[in-house]
Design a protein around this nucleic acid. Structure first.
Lengths: 148, 148
DNA sequence: TTGACATGGTTCGTATTGCGTATCAATATA
DNA sequence: TATATTGATACGCAATACGAACCATGTCAA
């Protein structure tokens, strides 16, 4: 028997959780492995992914990552030292600093995406094309609800 | 052994990735927040979750977590100091040590599950009961394929 | 039986990560 | 103009994860 619960949604929500959380852990493990192969932390991968099509300031970046600004500051310092990202003074606020990918960083994230696709193929390949699409749609709906 | 976009659904797999990875990150962020509220690291949460219905030895635990045994050793040491898990000599191998949840640890993980259910409700609630079930089924299929 | 090797766990030293606190420069507000 | 507030950084600390080194126990072959 499962742990006794409140009254809300009895078993349904809970068992979805029991599928969602392990899948999330597996996904993170895969990303982590890819990161290790490229000498990148999970957070740095995520950071590069966020900057993929954006140019953000420190606090914005921190907000996206759910981290404190000092943490991001150090993260950027290390990434900058490795030539993956670059800083530029913000045009509107002279206190602020814009962060963006260098061409090297952009190439790296592209390689990572290819590797990620490869590495997660065993997961996705177990579903038919139609099922993959259905799954993608459901996940995107959840994401939209989360952010909206 | 296929390159990133050969014959098998080129864009589809990639866009599934674009949904799966963000959902994984959101899920981890939620778990991380719940962990922070209870002064638990993500890894420790996972560890407790794994021990939820099992009694494992160090190396087994390390294998489940995808970590080295020394890492788990320290992790267990800290968890033990907090009274969440306990050690016992293994009956079959005198070198080995069994790790299991204390009643306090079991209560904690139950609380965490309730909190997780609450916290992820905004995600899951965006789907109907039928859709949730469909999603769960698809995720479980992927997980089975991964482990099997 | 006795070596030699393998396995399970722990300890130690090190690097990275993320946070709280404190600080400085630039902006906003009174 | 005086006083916050905001954006970013520097510093110190605790937790995490690893490799290397180390014991104790188990296994296997000669």
């Amino acid at each position: 028997m499962s742990t006794q619960k409140q009254n809300e949604t009895p078993a349904a929500g809970e068992s979805l959780l029991d599928a969602l959380v392990p899948v999330a852990f597996v996904t993170m493990a895969v990303l982590n492995r890819i990161g290790a192969e490229n000498d990148l932390s999970l957070t740095l991968i995520r950071l590069l992914g966020i900057l993929h099509d954006r140019r953000l300031r420190m606090v914005e970046l921190a907000h996206h990552l759910g981290l404190e600004k000092q943490t991001v500051s150090g993260l950027i310092a290390r990434a900058e030292k490795r030539g993956l990202v670059a800083r530029a003074p913000n045009a509107e606020d002279r206190r602020a600093v814009d962060i963006f990918l260098t061409s090297e960083g952009a190439e790296l994230i592209a390689r990572l995406r290819a590797q990620g696709h490869q590495a997660l193929a065993p997961l996705t390949r177990s579903l038919s094309a139609a099922e993959q699409q259905r799954l993608q749609e459901l996940l995107e709906r959840m994401l939209d609800a989360w952010h909206g």
